[in-house]
Design a protein around this nucleic acid. Structure first.
Length: 189
DNA sequence: CTTAGGATCGCCT
DNA sequence: GGCGATCCTAAGC
């Protein structure tokens, strides 16, 4: 199935996909690891880039699911999203943190940091470590340079408020792997 | 430990 | 002209 990848149906709501992505391995040109933190966004959500309709920047999120949406944040960083639902809905999942597994030396070199816990502990860091830029915007996640592998084993997922937004603060659409030392911030207890 | 400021791009008011 | 789905560094308590 076209929308099924790594055991996840990307045509589902972004809040569903965001939870299911915790524990999934993502590689870009063979470098990456296990997703431990995500956030869901949706066109009905005032905190989403897509809330006010399609623009050149967010067009990828209105495209087909299981594709990448990469945007520039604060003019400096890149952030990686996976598009959800059917084309035209403007929904997606922000990849906020990864547990580094393969290509750790490459990530260290790209990030200029030694501590593994700091390699991918934030959306901008994830893209720097994995080498994601606008060149990957709108690419199909089924094909290289992307590779997604299903979650293996049990994962405990916690939900809480999203980070760095000023609207819809009460929506609990941040998802983390419980107890992971690789999060951008610990989940509030 | 917390807070503040700078970097710098695309879109909005 | 303002403001982010951010990160890093420096300074203060």
């Amino acid at each position: 199935m076209k929308n099924i990848l790594a055991g996840i149906d990307f045509a589902e709501d972004s809040s569903i996909v965001a939870q299911q992505l915790i524990g999934v391995t993502v590689l870009v040109y063979g470098v990456g690891g296990r997703i431990v933190e995500t956030e869901a966004y949706d066109a009905l959500d005032p905190a989403s880039h897509t809330f006010s309709g399609i623009t050149p920047r967010n067009a990828a999120m209105f495209g087909p699911p299981a594709h990448a949406y990469v945007y520039r944040s604060y003019g400096i960083h890149w952030c990686l999203n996976f598009v959800c639902r059917e084309a035209g809905h403007g929904a997606g999942v922000l990849i906020r943190a990864i547990e580094p597994l393969t290509g750790i030396e490459t990530m260290r070199a790209r990030r200029g940091v030694d501590d593994v816990r700091l390699l991918c502990s934030g959306p901008g860091k994830v893209c720097q470590a994995l080498g994601v830029t606008h060149l990957q915007n709108r690419l199909d996640l089924h094909a290289p340079p992307f590779e997604l592998r299903p979650r293996e084993g049990e994962v405990t997922v916690l939900a809480g408020p999203r980070i760095g937004i000023s609207k819809a603060m009460e929506v609990p659409w941040r998802f983390v792997q419980a107890g992971s030392p690789y999060l951008s911030k610990p989940m509030r207890s």
